[in-house]
């Protein structure tokens, strides 16, 4: 009996150990924690430097700014795309730091549900990670593109294939093409690397290529960094990452002959990209002041820095 008790306790302790391990990793990897940390860090120095600059010049104006910050009060509710979770949380966090009396809440229910609820009036901003449909616009939703999400397809540096067509990319990821020689490269097996289910990048990639849940991944890694490392170190590997993390350890392939660059995405010629829309019911100028201020904040230099800091491209 005693032995059994001891082993039960030992089992419990083992479980506690493994569970706390899991808990820690998920916490540190949760998008909110990731995005809010840089956001807060970036917001803080800018604010303080702004205060320092303006303080000696015109003390009264600095005071006015501070007053204006606390004057605005109310709440902004956002609802919608899970892909925009990182952006929405970062915006909510830093906006609330700047305007302590405004509460910003964000729910992640999916793009369509977000637009639906903004049209129904149950939230102020509907987040959508796709362009609004004609129907949605007809019902009064206004498409405010706040950022653009771009995805680059990367291969290992020794690969001779530098251009893929959209169809080739689809057939590689669905497992029909398994050797680089079939798409004009060396006789080498293709190692298909992707992200885990639930990842925003994976969602966007599969959605844009219309291969949702049809992908045959050989590796499902749980971070952008892991994908980059795997592709860089594995001959014949192919992966996808968001555009901002590209470096020279991997090669970003051209898609239908178009380079994966910010310019091409803005020009609309690179197809693996999508707009991040914060939809409102009616124009921004018709919204309540705190919602208007949120959009002003996003358009300000501070807001633009914030958008870049979560790996997104600024729209023109």
């Amino acid at each position: 009996m005693k032995k059994r008790m001891i082993s039960l306790l030992a089992a419990g302790i083992l479980v506690v150990g493994s569970l706390t391990g899991c808990g820690n990793t998920t916490e540190t990897e949760s998008p909110a924690a990731q995005s809010s940390a840089p956001a807060a860090q970036e917001a803080a120095p800018e604010e303080s430097s702004a205060a320092q600059e303006s303080a000696p010049a015109e003390e009264s104006s600095a005071a006015e700014v501070a007053e204006a910050n606390t004057d605005l009060s109310g709440s902004v509710s956002m609802s919608g795309s899970t892909s925009m979770e990182k952006l929405a949380n970062a915006v909510a966090e830093s906006f609330m730091v700047k305007y302590p009396n405004v509460t910003v809440t964000a729910e992640f229910t999916g793009s369509s549900a977000g637009v639906e609820s903004v049209l129904a009036g149950s939230c102020d901003i509907g987040n959508s990670s796709r362009a609004l449909t004609e129907d949605e616009k007809a019902e009064g939703a206004v498409e405010n593109i706040v950022a653009i999400d771009g995805i680059a397809v990367v291969v290992d540096p020794a690969n001779t294939v530098t251009n893929l067509t959209k169809d080739q990319l689809i057939s590689i990821y669905t497992g029909e093409t398994t050797n680089w020689s079939e798409v004009g490269g060396a006789d080498q097996a293709i190692v298909v690397v992707g992200r885990e289910a639930g990842s925003g990048t994976r969602g966007a990639f599969e959605e844009l290529l219309e291969i949702e849940d049809a992908c045959a991944y050989a590796n499902e890694l749980d971070s952008t960094g892991a994908v980059m490392a795997k592709v860089a170190s594995t001959p014949g590997a192919i992966g996808y990452v968001s555009l901002d993390v590209l470096d020279d350890t991997v090669i970003a392939v051209q898609l239908d002959g178009v380079d994966a660059t910010e310019e091409n995405i803005k020009a609309g010629s690179y197809s693996l990209s999508r707009p991040f829309v914060m939809a409102t019911k009616g124009e921004i100028s018709e919204q309540k002041p705190e919602v208007q201020e949120l959009f002003n904040y996003l358009a300000s230099e501070e807001g633009q820095e914030l958008i870049k800091s979560v790996g997104l491209i600024l729209p023109e």
Binding site: T26, P31, F108, A197, G200, E220, D222
Partner: peptide
């Protein structure tokens, strides 16, 4: 399975 998907699962 727990570690890799807990971050974004809902």
């Amino acid at each position: 399975a727990l570690v890799s998907e807990m971050g974004y699962a809902s």
